[in-house]
């Protein structure tokens, strides 16, 4: 009996190892382990085995069944793996991708977002105001003389009702101070409008980023440190920044900020990037009169303000030569900024 079982095992394992397809393997499984198999028959013969041998024979039966079963499983795994591999063998991984449409953000959004992220880390919150403004918010409150040329209809867009399209985002300084009390630490991105014919360096509508910080004890040194940090964050830690004295009606002292531009193939030069200064006390006085309180008493508080052109930042950052590219929305242009 034991010898027969050895024979069954030997023959079965030899047969299984020679099998090469899954149908034959299934046939072999039925043949070697099924109800009519020699092994099952041998199992049925257990009742004729003398009692003293039953234990050994029973053990042997199990060993043989296990050996055949694992040989079948092993073979099955091999065949399945071969089939799986064959199923994907014809794939050419070097084919171009199936197409998903590609998209991207406008370069102005990308530049503005970077600026906003940096300034938010510095504790500035966003603020906004209307683009159709009153002359008071755009000029009077910003200490601009009544006969200042910027108010001319040749320079500024007006509406029949006397309102205008804001010529700078500085009007948001006023809008914010009307509503909030110091400390005020805000940035305001937005459109501004000037009555310029459109060409490579002028747009009738352009994008600015305004900043304002009003509190007790704000100094010119704070303004300098803030803008230096900002420009080094955005253009790199080695960025050189200089402050040139300038004039704006609503800040005093006023400065223009220049950045040393190192563009490939061009001479290194200083380029104007922002205007800034300490909020003119006359602006606080005007806001205070409108509010009817002393929250902006110029003898108690100081502040700094700055403004820069986002279009200009984008031109510098990406080397864009012509402002019109920013409003034409040619996809061949837009897709260059996907990063």
């Amino acid at each position: 009996m034991l010898a027969e079982l050895d024979t069954i095992q030997t023959e079965a394992l030899a047969a299984i190892s020679g099998i090469d397809d899954e149908a034959a393997l299934e046939e072999a499984r039925v043949g070697f382990l099924g109800k009519k198999s020699r092994l099952t028959e041998a199992g049925a013969g257990m009742r004729d085995v003398p009692a003293d041998l039953k234990k050994d024979v029973g053990q042997k039966l199990n060993e043989v069944r296990n050996a055949i079963t694992s040989a079948l499983e092993e073979k099955s795994a091999t065949l399945t793996a071969r089939r799986d591999a064959a199923a994907f063998a014809s794939i050419d991984p070097t084919l171009p991708a199936r197409s998903l449409p590609k998209g991207g953000l406008h370069p102005l959004t990308l530049v503005l977002d970077e600026a906003v992220r940096i300034l938010r880390r510095m504790g500035f919150a966003l603020a906004e105001g209307p683009e159709i403004e009153t002359e008071w918010h755009c000029f009077d409150a910003l200490n601009t003389p009544a006969d200042h040329p910027a108010r001319n209809e040749t320079d500024t867009f007006y509406f029949e009702n006397g309102k205008l399209l804001r010529t700078h985002t500085s009007s948001v300084q006023i809008r914010t101070m009307e509503k909030e009390v110091p400390p005020v630490r805000i940035i305001a991105p937005g459109s501004a409008f000037r009555r310029d014919e459109i060409d490579a360096t002028h747009l009738s509508a352009f994008n600015q980023l305004e900043g304002l910080y009003v509190d007790r004890g704000v100094t010119l040194a704070d303004l300098k440190g803030t803008l230096e940090y900002f420009f080094r964050e955005i253009f790199g830690s080695k960025t050189e920044v200089r402050f040139r004295p300038h004039f704006f009606p609503f800040t005093e002292p006023s400065f223009e900020v220049d950045l040393k531009l190192h563009a490939a193939g061009r001479a290194v030069k200083w380029i104007e990037i922002a205007g800034c200064g300490m909020v003119d006390p006359a602006v606080f006085t005007e806001v205070g009169a409108k509010r009817g309180d002393s929250a902006y008493d110029p003898s108690a508080i100081t502040g700094f303000a700055f403004g820069m052109g986002i279009d200009r930042l984008a031109m510098i950052m990406y080397g864009i030569p012509d402002l019109r590219l920013l409003i034409e929305n040619d996809v061949r242009f837009l897709q260059q900024f996907r990063g």
């Binding site: 998209g103 953000l105 406008h106 102005l108 009738s204 409003i327 996809v331 837009l334």
Partner: peptide, 14 residues
């Protein structure tokens, strides 16, 4: 929208 294959435009407001 950019992930869905859209490009952002910025047209003049006038």
């Amino acid at each position: 929208l950019a992930s869905l294959g859209f490009y952002e435009t910025r047209n003049l407001k006038l």
